[in-house]
Design a protein around this nucleic acid. Structure first.
Lengths: 215, 215
DNA sequence: ACCTGAACACCGTTCAAGT
DNA sequence: ACCTGAACACCGTTCAAGT
């Protein structure tokens, strides 16, 4: 029973769920696949390359075609939702993706889909790319924090840290941050997406106003 | 010449510049401070605690008072600028901060300042906190990528990865991503900030429209 | 109180040798 | 071609013992 590249990635994602990113080691992964740690270097030149492949796998489906009849802002929301779901699908998934860059087909397809979508409604391709990446940063940052908060001792989580804070925060600040810690992360995410897309919409109106006289 | 907590943080930030986050080890830091690696555990309970203190130090000044006569949107921009500058002030600074949570006075002051600013123009405190964090995620994601790109071989950087991409990206996508890689990161950052703040502004108008009849 | 020296339990990675 | 076994050069962390 030979070990294929894809089997290694499968096993690594399983182990990621079990141990977290910090506990994911080549030796443990080898053991999970009934192989010595060093044997994995027949399939990947380094642990980093394996993590890249894991990140690629995590982004599967994010760039899948969107319903053409859907309004473009909803299509943007849908892509954001998909990306978040995929990043959260594995423990520390967001951190895994954050450590890698461009490369694989899933990543390219997803990025391409977003740039294409924004271009189709009137953004110059370059600006579409800027928007796509800015948006990606928000989603990544949000999901990294989401996954970090899950691992904090729920009782001794954010409330305790706030209580220990120096200087003592104002009551208004304290209650704002507490409310934030208690809020549903999915709702907070959707709020951020809405905010960002409102800015995108406004920018498009601006572009169209400039364009009507110029073109 | 005793070693103080602050001296360890100073040395760690120096070493961070020299070695990067991955090269920052307790043994090397000890050597830089003319001490055994293990001795550092008299000052910090763990490497993680040291990294937290480094993150705290990096955020110094971000929450400093803003000119009262400055329009609030410019104050928001100014805080974003400050945060970016601080994160970029040390090699891998953004990644250091991304690995930590709340806690210290600089962090609290900065967060408090932003929430206070947004509250003062009419956002409910809780919503102000949501906006602050969403914005923080974008800045962090952007600066992490900025610092990662600096370290990529400039010649074999993004262009080469794009050329190797599977499936081959459309010419439009390829040129969009190439233009993006060549663009001034500071300009791209300001663009993202503007986009986000346009959304914030629109949301505030919405709130005020609701409020006039309700209150 | 602060540091040394040495150890413990790990890492990622390499490589001759096996099958 | 793929894997084993063992090694190399490291890690973070602990702790008796020194000063």
């Amino acid at each position: 029973m030979v070990l294929r590249r894809a089997d290694v990635v499968d096993g690594a994602l399983e182990l990621l769920d079990a141990e977290g990113l910090d506990g994911l080691t080549m030796r443990k992964l080898g053991a999970a696949l009934n192989v010595q740690g060093g044997a994995l270097y027949r399939h990947f030149p380094s642990k980093e390359a394996l993590l890249d492949a894991m990140a690629e796998r995590l982004l599967a489906g994010v760039g899948a075609p969107l319903p053409a009849e859907m309004p473009w802002l909803d299509q943007c929301r849908e892509m954001a939702e998909r990306l978040r779901v995929q990043l959260l699908s594995r423990r520390d998934g967001a951190r895994v993706v954050a450590g890698t860059y461009v490369s694989g087909p899933n990543t390219m397809t997803a990025g391409g889909r977003a740039i294409e979508l924004l271009s189709s409604v009137g953004f110059p391709p370059e600006e579409a790319a800027w928007i796509t990446f800015a948006f990606f940063y928000f989603v990544l940052g949000h999901t990294i924090e989401e996954q970090a908060l899950v691992r904090l001792d729920p009782a001794h989580g954010w409330e305790a840290r706030l209580a220990e804070a120096q200087p003592v925060p104002s009551p208004a600040l304290a209650s704002a941050m507490l409310a934030m810690a208690k809020a549903d992360p999915a709702e907070r995410f959707r709020y951020g997406v809405r905010l960002f897309l409102a800015g995108v919409e406004r920018r498009l109106e601006e572009l169209r106003a400039d364009g009507t006289s110029g073109v």
